[in-house]
Simulated scan of single mutants.
Amino acid sequence: MFSLPKNVTLIEVGPRDGLQNENNSIPTDQKLAFIHALQNAGIKEMEITSFVSPKWVPQMADASEIVHRVKKLGRQLVLTPNARGAENALEAGAESIAVFVGVSDTFNRHNINRSTAESMELLQPIITQAKEDGHFVRACISTAFHCPYEGFIPPAQTMALCQQFVRMGVDELSVADTDGMANPSASYSLFLALKEQFPDILITAHFHDTRKLGLANIYASLQAGVDRFDTSAGGLGGCPFAPGATGNVATEDVLYLLDSLEIETGIDREKICAAVDTVAPYLSRPIETAMYNLYKRNH
């Protein structure tokens, strides 16, 4: 039996990564109710919104209002794709920011119209300034295993990009299987290497459940020593620039796995499902995760 972590932190990404691709316009009050219900369930770290152009992501047009009105509890991350986004986020009162870049040049160009190298060059002063001002900085690494345009991504390429971010001074690396093509063997190998090479950096695994391997990849990552995972209540999410990618691995399903392994999270699975209830009526598609459906049958 592999040695597994005794405690795991789940970073809830539903309010940002989960809702950004939702077709229905969700009222700000409802987003806040969702966030606060997640907090009530025991979530201590969460992506709450994104400071992106409302032209491209209209769902996130209320980012400033979300930051102003949200209950300040735990680490609340906001995604900032560029200097303007970072400036707007910090002006709104954000204390922790997330920047992102794809390992794949082609994906990065589809996403933010720049090569990976160009993105990194532009992110350097943003990260430097944020750290000088005392802010927490999370780096989100997209297409860490596979790209929908370029195919397989060599692990060395992902490791090199992570190394660049570490040199820039980030606090956390969130390494993502953006299109859900990772398998347990690849997940174990990559995250074991990341944990060994960057022992002083928070390493977080981010899986999509496109091919129903999300939980298997999480178990493999646990075996590699990972104790931080991005999850999305209700399995909400996807990526508009990764054709075919479905939602993030569901918080409630991950909690069932961790509970069965007697790994502590401090999060109440029933309350996570209750949080999903606050937003489910506003969504364009039904919630179909295993634990949420069980919850609905029992309530």
Rank of each mutant, 00 (worst) to 15 (best):
A280N: 08
R109T: 09
I127A: 08
W56M: 13
D171V: 02
K44T: 15
D209M: 01
T204K: 13
N217K: 08
V78Q: 12
I153S: 07
A98T: 08
P54Q: 15
V254G: 01
Q39M: 09
Q164Y: 07
V8M: 03
N21V: 11
K212Y: 15
K55L: 10
H208A: 00
F152M: 08
V78R: 08
N113H: 14
V52F: 03
N298L: 13
N183M: 05
K6E: 15
H206A: 03
G247L: 00
D177E: 07
T289N: 05
P281E: 01
L173Y: 08
T210H: 11
F207H: 13
F2Q: 15
P184T: 09
A224W: 02
P199D: 07
L73N: 15
F107I: 10
A83M: 15
A92E: 14
A205N: 03
Y256K: 12
N111S: 06
V78T: 11
A61D: 05
A224Y: 03
L202T: 14
K72N: 14
G180M: 09
P243R: 09
M60K: 00
L215M: 06
D259W: 03
F107K: 10
P281T: 02
A89Y: 04
H110F: 12
E12N: 12
E270N: 13
A274T: 12
M159K: 07
T49C: 13
A92P: 10
